[in-house]
Amino acid sequence: MSLPPYASPLERAWHVTLWAIAVLVLGFLILPILVIVPLSFSSGSFLSFPLPGLSLRWYHELLGSERWLSSLRNSVIVAFASTILATVLGTLAALGLQRAKFPGSSLVLALLISPMVVPLVIVAVGVYFFYAPFGLTGSLVGLTLAHTALASPFVVITVSATLQGFDTNLSRAAASLGAGPTLAFFRITLPLILPGVVSGALFAFVTSFDEVVVALFLTGPQDRTLPRQMFDGIRENISPIIAAAATLLIVLSVALMTVMEALRRRSERLRGLR
């Protein structure tokens, strides 16, 4: 945005200052993440600049390590399982909340969203004690159940937001043409709210894939997840192998963000056309 020619010197100064602040804050947000990338290609074993030379040795080490690979495998399994569960349960709940107000529905909504705000350590300690008698600690099943609970609010929120822009006359029209509720849902409603469902699922995936506090309590040495492996690595002995793992995770977040942006633009475009 440029200033009009009649702007006073004070306004010009303010304009420049604002730009400077914005650039600095954006730099603060993005630079720490970018700094870690070149360090992962270091040929030395210290995380400092200047790099002694470039190499892929830390990626070789990362991808050759059974510990890292098994933790990645565990994370992927838990994240997929809890994403599916959270997406199905969350989408159904969002549809229900939109269908009709029922007694206590706002309290129910507050409870459905509460996993987002309860401090993670409280969830972790709670499920640690509660799941233990059922043999759900030290297993991926317990972690999946806890992650599903933590991820479901994101699905409820994104699908509810999409449903607000959904024209219910469309499913009425389907019903009047003889479609049963199930057919109408899969042929009419679901395709239209799919962007919301997908972005909710992505949020759910990231929530589980990133979650470390509950994982610290619920997983043993056998079933450690990727974030837990990162946590131990950062705490005990931070080496370029962490930078390599971090770089791969950054690539993953760029991919996820790109999908989210595409979905958002698509829904904005559709809304613009209407």
Partner: peptide, 21 residues
């Protein structure tokens, strides 16, 4: 995008980056 990329990046990646920095 510069705001959203950190938002989507793992907390451990960001915390680890600060330990390094």
């Amino acid at each position: 995008i510069l705001v959203l990329l950190p938002f989507w990046t793992s907390i451990l990646v960001r915390t680890g980056a600060w330990v390094v920095l």
